[in-house]
Amino acid sequence: MTPKYKRVLLKLSGEALMGEQEYGISSHMINMFSRQIVELADLGIEVGVVIGGGNIFRGLSGEEQGIDRVTGDHMGMLATVINALALQNTIEKLGVQTRVQTGLEIPKVAEPFIKRKAQRHLEKGRVVIFGAGTGNPYFTTDTAAALRAMEIDADIVMKGTKVDGIFDKDPAKYADAKKYDTITYSEVIAQGLKVMDTAAISLCMDNDLPILVFDSLVDGNIKKAVFGEVIGTTVVK
Rank of each mutant, 00 (worst) to 15 (best):
G95V: 00
R120S: 12
T198R: 08
Q97F: 15
A84M: 03
M29D: 06
V127G: 05
N136P: 00
V49L: 05
I67W: 06
F33W: 05
L40N: 06
Q88E: 14
S61K: 09
I183M: 06
A146Q: 10
V96D: 13
G133H: 11
E15T: 07
A144N: 06
Y138Q: 06
Q191G: 02
K11V: 03
I56A: 12
L17A: 12
L12P: 04
E63R: 09
N221Q: 10
V109I: 09
M1Y: 13
P112Y: 15
T140W: 06
S13N: 07
K179M: 06
L212V: 07
V235M: 02
T98N: 04
Q88C: 07
M1E: 14
S27C: 07
V213T: 03
F139C: 04
Y5D: 01
I67N: 07
K173S: 11
S13W: 00
E64A: 13
K179Q: 12
A41H: 05
L217E: 12
G135C: 12
F130K: 02
I51H: 05
G19A: 05
V157N: 01
P137C: 13
D155L: 10
F113R: 02
D215G: 12
M29W: 04
P137K: 15
I56S: 11
D208P: 01
I56R: 00
F139G: 00
G48Y: 03
Y185R: 01
K6Q: 09
K223R: 12
I30P: 07
T98F: 06
R116L: 11
K194I: 11
H121S: 11
I37R: 02
G76I: 04
R99N: 07
A110S: 12
D68P: 15
A175D: 15
A86L: 01
G103E: 15
A145R: 02
L94V: 01
G160E: 03
C204N: 04
L85G: 14
V70C: 05
I211H: 02
E111L: 13
V218M: 10
V127S: 11
H74Y: 15
L147R: 01
P3H: 15
L217P: 05
A154C: 04
Q191K: 15
R99V: 07
I106P: 00
M32W: 01
V50I: 14
T161M: 01
T198C: 02
V109F: 10
Q101R: 08
K159Q: 08
F227P: 00
R58C: 15
L40G: 01
E15Q: 05
K159V: 09
P171F: 03
T198G: 02
A154Q: 03
V195C: 01
S34M: 04
L203K: 08
E151N: 05
P107V: 11
Q101E: 14
L10K: 00
